[in-house]
């Protein structure tokens, strides 16, 4: 009789397997599917993910007391000093860059162009630009200014200089 019961239970397992799979689904035990005769392990021997999260939560610091709160504030002020140090580093970096630029400028100024044609071309171009700017912004001598001058030695000198310049340009 006992054998018949066991055969019927086997037959039930063969023809109605989903009945047992439900039990398996509730557990994370991978051996549960293969457990014979429906003897499923009730105790989960594997550590589930839920348990891990719980453990993490348990390990998390909870600032409840004044001491812990002050520790938190202290850590924040430490962060401030770290930020301050970071800013100082940036300032130092900027200063270094600036120094490099200034050095480069000084070096350019002190650099002498030894290639004569290039030197002449640059100096000529500079002279032309300088003359153009000078003539553009120079107000020149106006007749009204001369007429208002009380001391005639100034217009005398100006006239002499310009007449001489005119005569010199014709002579050359």
């Amino acid at each position: 009789m006992a054998d018949l019961l066991s055969i019927s239970s086997i037959r039930e397992r063969i023809f109605n397997p989903t009945k047992h799979e439900k039990t398996v689904a509730r557990s994370s035990n991978p051996f549960a599917q293969t457990s014979f005769k429906g003897n499923v392990l009730t105790a989960d021997v594997f550590v589930s993910e839920n348990d891990k999260t719980n453990e993490k939560q348990n390990n998390a610091i909870s600032f409840t007391g004044k001491l812990k709160a002050s520790a938190l504030v202290g850590s924040i002020s430490n962060f401030g000093s770290k930020i301050q140090a970071g800013i100082e580093t940036v300032v130092a970096f900027a200063n270094r860059i600036k120094d490099n630029v200034v050095n480069c400028w000084n070096k350019l100024n002190s650099t002498e162009i030894t290639f004569e044609p290039a030197k002449e071309a640059i100096s000529k171009a500079g002279g032309k630009v300088s003359d153009a700017i000078h003539s553009m912004f120079e107000p020149g001598i106006s007749a009204k200014q001369i007429a208002k001058m009380e001391d005639l030695s100034v217009p005398r000198q100006l006239l002499m200089d310009n007449v001489q310049a005119w005569e010199a340009s014709l002579a050359s």
């Binding site: 020149g140 001598i141 106006s142 007749a143 009204k144 200014q145 001369i146 007429a147 001058m149 217009p155 100006l158 006239l159 310009n162």
Partner: peptide, 8 residues
């Protein structure tokens, strides 16, 4: 301009 100024 200088000569004109002196004329005035």
């Amino acid at each position: 301009n200088i000569i004109d100024g002196l004329a005035m």
